[in-house]
């Protein structure tokens, strides 16, 4: 298993909203089986970067490739079919569908398509994986916050993506839930999933990430192992400066 195969490559990517440059000339690579942390203070452009990768937004300039072929400029559904799946910072579940159908939604049209019995078996496996098997037939409205987050993760996993984008998936959980959440992502990591993790929880970053890219005001200010970047003077200044403001 070649550990250094590049799954996702971001080159010179920028995104402008009118006069505001939300992402500025970003470049980085994500290798196969790597969990990459994308961190930075509030408003630094992390979610925008995720939106550019998943096709929710179009880039102003630059290029993004998945396994060597260009995906930037494609519509979101095509990018998903090529193997990019995500969760959203503000949870988005499908409220009128059952928990089970929410997961089927993830695998019926996406990267590795399944339908009928095949999809149902697969959905059961994934629900079990994220710990929602017991509520499979419940309506989504009855789920707690962490269960909604689990469900979103299950939906993203259902298409068996080449790369998984998690936008603050651990945010808003209480300390016990946080431990459960971290364990769950550790499991995914052990499976060899390739993941980009946007996260503010430092413990999670230290224990989960192989590498980190740090953003501030839309630009990359540091890159390296979690230990290195969190000790970096500019990174500390960016976080503290943001806290003072």
């Amino acid at each position: 298993m070649a550990r250094d195969r590049t799954v996702l490559s971001v080159r010179g990517v920028s995104k402008r909203f009118g006069g505001l440059v939300a992402v500025s000339d970003m470049s980085f690579d994500v290798k196969e089986h790597q969990v990459m942390g994308l961190i930075g203070p509030n408003g630094s452009g992390k979610t925008t970067m995720m939106n550019l990768i998943s096709g929710a937004l179009r880039l102003s300039s630059g290029q993004i490739s998945l396994q060597g072929s260009r995906i930037s400029g494609l519509p979101a559904q095509e990018i998903n079919r090529r193997g990019v799946a995500r969760t959203f910072q503000l949870v988005r579940v499908l409220p009128t569908l059952s928990v089970f159908d929410n997961v089927i939604a993830g695998c019926a049209f996406g990267h590795r398509r399944r339908w009928g019995r095949d999809a149902e078996d697969h959905a059961h496996d994934i629900l079990e994986r994220v710990g929602l098997e017991a509520v499979a037939l419940a309506p989504v409205s009855s789920l707690t916050y962490i269960d909604q987050k689990r469900l979103e993760l299950a939906r993203a996993l259902a298409s068996d993506p080449e790369i998984l984008l998690l936008d603050e998936w651990l945010a808003g959980l209480n300390p016990t839930e946080l431990q459960t959440g971290i364990e769950l992502i550790k499991d995914l990591r052990a499976d060899g999933r390739t993941i980009i993790l946007v996260e503010h929880v430092m413990d999670a970053i230290r224990s989960l990430c192989d590498a980190c890219v740090v953003m501030n005001s839309g630009a990359k200010i540091a890159e390296g192992s979690p230990g290195e970047v969190l000790a970096d003077a500019e990174v500390i200044r960016a976080y503290l400066g943001d806290d003072d403001a």
Partner: peptide, 17 residues
């Protein structure tokens, strides 16, 4: 099924392929 997902959330629908 796709139409029901679209009725729920069009952004999610697109991100489901």
């Amino acid at each position: 099924f796709a139409l029901r997902i679209i009725g729920n959330d069009e952004v999610v629908a697109a991100h489901c392929g």
